[in-house]
């Protein structure tokens, strides 16, 4: 059962990711954004299969919720009709395929040749309680610094979106 679910979620993740970058039917960024939502939802399914329940919830809330709403708002603000009329550059795609194929070959070769020192029956549970206690005991300082980072990002965004940007 779990194996079948892994293959279903992995296939839907990869197919939806391919649809984000090259949908054969539409080059509208809104379609890309919608397929990105599907990709992120399938990834949340993979996280659940890995027993990372808290991260699966955060993935859906933050990525599929907040980040994608932000993307759709910006797509709405910009007029992207011109995108659909542009021609696809064959050279760019060929060069990209060569680069990506090389990197993918290196990654897959190193994954298949490495002997991982792993447990046969992992017992780890990524629920809220163990993750929260680790976050607030051992990783308290990084956690506080991240709050500062979010504040800086917010101030930066407010400054950048002002009308008379110098």
């Amino acid at each position: 059962m779990q194996d079948a679910l892994f293959y279903i979620f992995a296939a839907s993740t990869l197919i939806c990711a391919l649809m984000v970058i090259g949908n054969p039917f539409s080059r509208n960024p809104v379609t890309s954004a919608m397929f990105l939502v599907l990709t992120i939802a399938s990834l949340a399914g993979l996280f659940v299969l890995l027993h990372a329940f808290f991260l699966a919830a955060v993935q859906v809330l933050v990525y599929a919720g907040a980040v994608m709403v932000l993307f759709l708002f910006v797509i709405m603000l910009l007029d992207l009709k011109a995108e659909e009329r542009r021609k696809v550059k064959k050279f760019g795609i060929a060069a990209g395929l060569v680069c990506v194929g090389a990197i993918l070959g290196i990654l897959l070769a190193s994954i298949s040749r490495t002997q991982f020192d792993v447990q046969e029956n992992p017992l780890l549970e990524g629920g809220t309680v163990p993750l929260g206690s680790l976050l607030f005991k051992h990783y308290l300082l990084p956690f506080e610094i991240v709050s500062l980072l979010l504040l800086v990002a917010m101030v930066g965004v407010v400054l950048l979106s002002k009308k008379d940007l110098k």
Partner: peptide
């Protein structure tokens, strides 16, 4: 993190998601 029985990886992913959210907001504003 799952297969080495170590929760630190998941904490790192939590930070990555937070930083990615901040990065997206600044990038889209740009």
């Amino acid at each position: 993190s799952r297969f080495t029985n170590n929760l630190d990886g998941q904490v790192f992913v939590f930070f990555v998601i937070t930083v990615a959210a901040a990065e997206v907001s600044v990038g889209l504003a740009l």
